[in-house]
């Protein structure tokens, strides 16, 4: 990452311009050519500095009022295989392997699920349990009962 990359990051951190030629708009701001902006963005995408160019939806605003953090205890030797399978489910938005904290916390697979109804979220949890089968050594679901802080994302302040 060099100075131009960092300038592009700063210019797009709040979002991509909503103009017909957004990369040209960024280029004009930085005094470089649109070709360079596009080249750099592609290359940062290849290097995984950029996950993707896309949207971050607000689940609550989309009507997904039941958002559960499901946590599962999976034997370490099977976690990658099972984690990939759980991550492929349509209703799972984030899926991670995280460390256990024995003896109080033995869950190492985290999957966020989202539904518009309580029944829906329960069905999703059953679907994950079924998919994991005997690999599931125990699970739990943690619902958020209060947002204590939410910053970092530009638009969020409007939603609090």
């Amino acid at each position: 990452m060099d100075k131009i990359d960092r300038q592009i990051i700063t210019a797009t951190q709040a979002g991509l311009p909503l103009t017909p030629q957004p990369y040209q708009t960024i280029a004009d701001q930085l005094g470089i050519s649109a070709e360079i902006v596009m080249q750099r963005l592609s290359s940062m995408q290849k290097q995984k500095i950029i996950r993707r160019i896309g949207v971050v939806p607000n689940h609550y605003r989309l009507g997904y009022n039941f958002n559960g953090m499901t946590v599962w205890n999976i034997a370490d030797e099977h976690i990658d295989k099972m984690g990939k399978k759980v991550g492929q489910l349509d209703f799972v938005s984030h899926c991670y392997h995280r460390p256990r904290h024995e003896p109080e916390w033995h869950y190492n697979l985290f999957a966020m699920v989202h539904s518009k109804t309580e029944t829906g979220v329960k069905q999703q949890i059953s679907a994950i349990a079924e998919l994991l089968g005997d690999y599931n050594l125990g699970h739990n679901v943690l619902y958020s009962t209060r947002i204590l802080k939410k910053t970092g994302l530009r638009i969020d302040s409007k939603n609090v």
Binding site: I53, V55, V56
Partner: peptide, 8 residues
């Protein structure tokens, strides 16, 4: 939408 653009 909370955001639209490159996700770093």
């Amino acid at each position: 939408l909370s955001r639209f653009g490159p996700l770093y």
